[in-house]
């Protein structure tokens, strides 16, 4: 049976898994973005820059941890099903989100913050009017890598009951049916590409114009 035939015969099934995969991704990305950016903001608050540095080192090193290790640990401590799968995706994708958000905020020029403070901006205004807008391109970079990582890792998380396109891949593997495996892997890649295009567009819209002008 060739790939084309397989896809047309199982179209509804594949579409269902694709949608399931998408929601797995969406929930994980939203939660990881909220948690990751919030933690980074707290860790880079005035006088706490050292904490930020520590987070940078930890998240820098954590990028080398394989996703399967995180999934296995969550399986041991939390168990099996959708919820543990989402937990493992969130934990794993927190790394790029926090790494970028922290380094982005820390790299806002000291003079900008000092000038803002000296001109009478409140702490909140310094965060929302200066730090975040200036760090937006870097923060968005982290969210984009997290998105790609979540979509890829979600395939593997199906081994602990996450569902989604991973089911196709592992079915293909078990039953020795390469069409299923390829259909699963390709769909996940297509999803990743679409999502990255969308996020690239979002990034373009929310990056302040002054950061993009030519010198």
């Amino acid at each position: 049976m060739n790939l084309f035939q397989y896809v047309s015969e199982n179209f509804n099934n594949i579409l269902g898994l694709f949608v399931e995969h998408f929601f797995l991704f969406l929930v994980s990305l939203i939660v990881t973005t909220i948690i990751g950016v919030t933690l980074s903001i707290i860790a880079t608050d005035e006088g706490r820059e050292k904490v930020g540095q520590v987070i940078l080192s930890i998240t820098g090193a954590a990028q080398a941890v394989p996703s399967i290790a995180v999934i296995a640990l969550v399986f041991i401590y939390v168990g099996i099903g959708k919820f543990p799968a989402i937990i493992s995706l969130i934990i794993y994708s927190l790394v790029p989100v926090m790494f970028n958000a922290t380094s982005g905020i820390l790299s806002v020029p000291k003079g900008v913050i000092e000038a803002g403070k000296g001109m009478g901006l409140t702490k909140k205004q310094i965060l929302w009017k200066l730090k975040i807008p200036i760090a937006i391109p870097v923060i968005m970079g982290g969210i984009r890598s997290a998105a790609t990582i979540i979509i890829g890792t979600a395939v593997i998380a199906s081994v602990i009951g996450g569902g989604g396109l991973g089911d196709l891949v592992f079915t293909g593997l078990k039953l020795n049916r390469p069409e299923a495996l390829i259909a699963g892997a390709a769909s996940s890649a297509i999803l990743a590409i679409i999502i990255d295009r969308i996020l690239a567009y979002v990034e373009k819209i929310i990056t302040p114009k002054g950061l993009k002008v030519e010198q």
């Binding site: 000291k110 003079g111 900008v112 000092e114 000038a115 200036i134 302040p208 950061l211």
Partner: peptide, 11 residues
Amino acid sequence: YVIQEIGLFPH
């Protein structure tokens, strides 16, 4: 307040 780094807001 003016500082050496100027600190204009780039955005």
